[in-house]
Design a protein around this nucleic acid. Structure first.
Length: 112
DNA sequence: GTAATGACGCGCC
DNA sequence: CGGCGCGCCATTA
């Protein structure tokens, strides 16, 4: 655990229920533009017991990052569907559920 | 030290 | 829509 991870977790925790965000967007919100991979790394080190909506983080394409059919893949799609997110073929329509620039600013209170 | 490996992203073709 | 290449960076071998 370090400062970068802490900010990444904070950014993920800020994703509203029923919505999703990309790794790149999380990295940017954490003050780490271009470090999308670091977000993926941080998610692999989330402490057990820590409450974090990790399943709301997707690739910029809306695709679930886990290999199709894997444990994480099924778990993520299950949780997303459970809160009303449309998951089809391992992918979520970002245009409908993703946080675009305006919504981002409105929900996360940061200037564009 | 170099090389490979990811819960990634973007531009190009 | 699919494939490639390159950038990114912490870890691991």
């Amino acid at each position: 655990m370090n400062d970068a991870h802490a900010r990444i977790f904070a950014a993920i925790a800020a994703i509203p229920r029923g919505r999703v965000a990309s790794y790149g967007a999380i990295a940017a919100r954490a003050g780490l533009p271009g470090r999308a991979r670091l977000v993926g790394r941080a998610l692999g080190e989330v402490p057990d017991g820590m409450e974090l909506p990790w399943y709301r983080v997707l690739r910029s394409s809306g695709q679930i990052a886990f290999p199709p059919g894997s444990r994480g893949f099924r778990e993520q799609s299950k949780r997303l569907k459970a809160e009303g997110v449309d998951v089809r073929n391992g992918r979520v329509p970002m245009s409908a559920f993703g946080l675009d620039a305006d919504l981002d600013r409105a929900l996360w209170g940061m200037p564009g």
